[in-house]
Simulated scan of single mutants.
Amino acid sequence: MSLPEPSRVIVGIATSGRPTVLAELVRQLANQSVQPHRFIISYAKPDDISAIPQTLRDSLKIEFVTGHMGLTTQRNVILDHMSDEDILLFFDDDFFPHPTYIAKIIECFWNNPDVLGATGSLLADGAKGPGLEIEDANRLNETAHIMAISPVEDVFNTYGCNMAFRCDAIKRLGARFDENLPLYSWYEDMDFSRSLLPYGRIVQVNGARGVHLGNKTGKGSGIRLGYSQIINCIYLARKGTYPWSHALKSAGRHFLINAVKSLKPEPYVDRRGRLRGNLIGIGDLLRNRITPERAATITISKVAS
């Protein structure tokens, strides 16, 4: 397809603990109808990138960068490597985009100069269930209907598995991912995108489609995630990027869901661990200890004591 300029796109992937899935994503990104100008993978441990063939590393000219483990930290490493590009596109390592995804994102930013951040439209989201297989993603992408003209609609925030931003806005506003949100970094995507919202629009591009596997490896402790489900909401509300009405509703909803489902938990979710983390978070709220970084230090032995 004929594309306008500018179209200098960075694809940035923060990865941890999913080498096989990441390697397949990289292979598929080589088939995008429009190739990114740069391709950066931020990894925590050497094994994270061990399954990517050397031929793909060379053909895509992948830049590998590393730093401390944690989604926000690893994404900030990618921000530190921006140069003079126009669009920065973040993919989770288990998000499989349709071959036209990058082209549709470029189209959105070109046609809507007031848009600072964008997220795509999911054909399926395995995060809401036991997860999807790569074969499921391939089938859904192959049969997807892609609109010739991609309408956009304003949204509350971008979804972290696939989100794009104007590089000049990031630089001008000094936007960073909050490294006080450690590990899996619950709601870091909302915090980052809504920090740009006062200066422009955040939209969903309905023609930029893909599948989020919702892979369950690399997620870490259910207790730590449960703690973040409570504390991160209140922390971001105090920070100003999350309305109090939404924060209280989110924290309460997740606590109730974990409490009810812990009676008969799904085999793919550590509900009891999440509920225990919720309770630790509520205890910290009562002590006025709003420190999301504590999630990185919580252990089962400490909880038991």
Rank of each mutant, 00 (worst) to 15 (best):
K239L: 00
S193N: 02
T119A: 10
Y227A: 05
G117A: 13
N157D: 11
R209S: 14
S150V: 04
D191L: 00
E153F: 10
V152L: 09
N215E: 15
I146P: 05
A247Y: 02
N157I: 05
L181K: 04
C167Q: 09
R176F: 00
D136G: 07
A118G: 09
D114N: 12
V203Y: 02
W186Y: 15
Y159M: 09
D191M: 03
F255K: 06
T158Q: 03
T217M: 14
S221H: 12
V211N: 08
A127C: 07
K171I: 00
S193Q: 02
C233E: 06
R194I: 05
S185C: 11
K128M: 06
N141Y: 07
I170V: 02
F156I: 02
Q204M: 14
G222F: 03
G214R: 13
E179D: 06
P182Y: 14
R139T: 12
V211D: 03
N111P: 07
G222R: 08
Y227E: 01
V152M: 10
N180E: 12
G210D: 02
T158A: 08
L140Q: 11
M147G: 13
I149R: 04
Y184A: 01
E153A: 13
I223R: 10
M190K: 05
D154R: 09
K216I: 14
K239Q: 02
V203E: 01
A208Q: 04
P130A: 09
D136H: 11
G160C: 04
N157L: 12
N157M: 14
D154G: 09
A175H: 01
V155W: 11
L197D: 09
E188F: 08
I234G: 01
T241F: 02
I230S: 00
D136S: 11
L123C: 07
G126C: 01
R209I: 14
Y235V: 01
G126Y: 03
I257N: 13
S221G: 07
A247T: 08
V211M: 12
L122A: 14
L248C: 10
N111D: 13
S245W: 08
G200L: 07
A175N: 06
H254Q: 14
M147V: 15
Q229Y: 06
D125V: 01
G129K: 13
A169I: 06
G200F: 12
L116P: 03
A175D: 07
H254G: 10
H246M: 11
E153Y: 08
H145P: 06
G214Y: 08
L256D: 11
N162M: 06
R172L: 02
G240H: 05
C167S: 10
T217P: 00
L197C: 12
I202S: 04
L140E: 07
M163H: 04
G252R: 13
N157K: 06
G218W: 07
V155D: 08
G214H: 12
E188R: 08
S228K: 13
D191E: 11
K239C: 00
A118D: 03
T217S: 15
L140I: 07
K249G: 12
E142N: 15
H246G: 06
S250W: 03
Q204V: 09
G120A: 06
R209V: 15
S245P: 10
S150K: 03
D178E: 07
I234N: 00
S121V: 08
Y242Q: 04
G226P: 03
F156W: 11
L213A: 13
F255T: 11
A164R: 02
D154S: 10
